[in-house]
Design a protein around this nucleic acid. Structure first.
Lengths: 355, 355
DNA sequence: CCCAACAGGTAACGCGCGTTACCAACATCG
DNA sequence: CGATGTTGGTAACGCGCGTTACCTGTTGGG
């Protein structure tokens, strides 16, 4: 009764073709097949038997068994990544970057979900389980990816294998990490506004304590200083990191000043807040970028590319961070030294139409 | 020179603890350990040695080797999913649904990227490679996920193992598939508008040929028919599936009629077009939903939840489809019969504030 | 008192493959 | 002509584990 495929019209399915079968079919030993397939340099197999073996492989449709190979060679060619894929509009980009890079290196990326509700509290049950599962698969390296830049604690068992943090950093500062250059991003954003002639720049801030806010604000300050200006604390308004929060903060900042003294540009520390800012600005009959220029941060495609006018913003280099994470891991597993404990990745400015 | 960890302060890292070590430490045979760890029912191991073994496992920090287990037991506990993660704002949700379900079943989901540019053209090089790689890992089942509902061609080798299609269907109609109930979604959207008292409903259509457009439109027609109304073809405008496309189509439809005859509601066949519709409506000094109600489709969180007012829309059940895909696969690999070749998944209405 | 029926455990084989040690045939050299 | 490579291969071991066949007491029944 347990037939998987009731209607089996005898396709060319050769399941379970093993190396031995290939060897028999080619009239050689299994060792010879192994040598040819792993085509080493110092081999000593005649060209003739070599092609004979390759033909046998083709004819039988032989497919190597990765598991067995891993067992025998004691290398799995797998990396593992632990990430909160749940609430993550971003995480996917990190995964994609890592995935593609791993694929280039002919490695597999095992993805394990981590629903850590709180980074601090020891709600690490699931996360530990994820790590454990990955180690059971004998991954050669581990990646931990966060959805927003912050400090994290990593399960103990991660010590057993090279580990790299992406978009987050180890609170104990032992593990190598890849994070966005928030400060550089803030600088480039404000420089762009300065270059467009704006000198009174309002800043719609995030929660001031998180690394993103600290870095971006610092960058803004730096850019202003380079232009001989100072950051007016009055012009910095914090709000919830949502469209509503951005809307309210923008209302606040726009209504506080007479038109003559009003900021002519807004630097929103994320795109969702920029979305709210758009509404507040339009509501007041002002135009973008004519009356007020807006620049965002994060480059959430769905927002930035579809707002009207399209939003000029600073991109978070998720894909690049993912790729760099895998590269760093590759270096570590190969025993090579890595460049630095913390690698900063550029946040490039994406010009659209709101400045 | 190739030291992975130069500063090795002797942590409790016990790498390579094997079953034999556990056996020795507990003073039993390796077989006994194997039996206890795979805790079978018909075992005959005394409670005492059983706990002794468990203690040894704890003390040595033994971690089973999943690869070796797979090799010996001839079952890998792995599924593979091939998906175009690249341009995909959605795919991630399918993956998440599948991932979570697989995790519940204590299985791993191997994700392989497929950058098939064209579903029809034989640009299947990469996709074939992905499938091949997955089969080398001896996955027990395969999932193919598309980012938008459409027909696809699947590599030959997929026949070797149970296969399920998600958000797409086999052009040859052989493989089981999981797709959204587009028609039901269209129906529920229009029903909601009817219920709010709207009878003149404009429809911002997608490319009329794709399954999504066909189904949703059919559903709309059905809902109207149930209310004794007919679909006015004049009120259906197709455009590019973007915010700009939605903007233009909406302008077209709004400017064509005198105010008295203007539609009082718009059914946008996706959220990006709804985004453009918002702009067109607001530009004309009209309010949402006061003057014109808007309903979308897809539930792209970043758009729907952050538009002002928040967009009422019909959700595409990606996560559920992913989960159902894995469940179907589980049934197939267990040799159980499946319910139907094509399973439809409900598209639920999400009430927000635009109706 | 002998035999069957357990409970409690072990030896040994094989999964598919990488790898090392070894072997035969031939060419080269002093 | 024997010693010494070199070329082209093979036998055999082990990776870590599941599984089956078997073995050794101890009981209970006739």
């Amino acid at each position: 009764m347990a037939k998987t495929n009731p209607d089996e019209s005898a396709p060319v399915r050769q399941r379970g073709v093993t190396m031995k079968d290939v060897a028999n079919h080619a009239g050689v030993s299994r060792t010879a097949v192994s040598i040819v397939l792993s085509n080493r340099e110092n081999a000593s197999i005649s060209e003739e038997t070599r092609t004979r073996i390759n033909h046998a492989v083709q004819e039988l449709g032989y497919r190597p068994n990765a598991g067995a190979r891993a067992l025998a060679s004691r290398r799995s060619d797998w990396y593992g990544i632990v990430t909160e894929i749940v609430t993550a509009p971003f995480a996917v980009d990190i995964i994609k970057g890592a995935q593609d890079q791993a694929w280039l290196d002919r490695r597999f990326l095992l993805i394990a979900p981590s629903d850590q509700a709180d980074a601090v509290g020891p709600n690490q049950g699931l996360e530990d389980a994820a790590t454990e599962k990955l180690l059971e698969q004998r991954v050669e390296g581990l990646l931990y990816a966060a959805t927003f830049h912050r400090g994290v604690h990593v399960p103990q068992s991660a010590n057993e294998v090279p580990t790299v943090l992406i978009n987050c950093f180890d609170a104990d500062g032992k593990l190598p990490s890849i994070v966005p250059d928030e400060r550089g991003g803030g600088r480039v954003a404000v420089e762009r506004l300065l270059q467009a002639g704006h000198t009174r720049i309002g800043i719609i801030n995030l929660d001031p304590d998180i690394p993103a806010a600290v870095g971006r604000l610092e960058g803004a300050r730096e850019a202003l200083a380079n232009a001989g200006l100072e950051l007016d604390p009055e012009l910095v308004v914090s709000g919830y990191a949502t469209a509503d929060g951005g809307y309210e903060a923008t209302c606040h900042i726009l209504d506080r000043y007479p038109e003559s003294d009003r900021p002519t540009a807004l630097f929103c520390l994320n795109d969702r807040m920029a979305m709210g800012a758009y509404d507040a600005i339009k509501e007041r009959g002002l135009t973008i970028p004519g009356d007020i220029a807006v620049i965002g941060f994060d480059n959430q495609e769905l927002i930035a590319a579809y707002l009207r006018p399209k939003l000029t913003t600073v991109a978070l280099p998720f894909e690049k961070m993912g790729a760099l994470g895998v590269q760093t891991l590759a270096a570590l597993t190969a025993g090579q030294p890595i460049l630095a404990d913390q690698q900063l990745v550029d946040c490039p400015l994406l010009e659209r139409s709101s400045v």
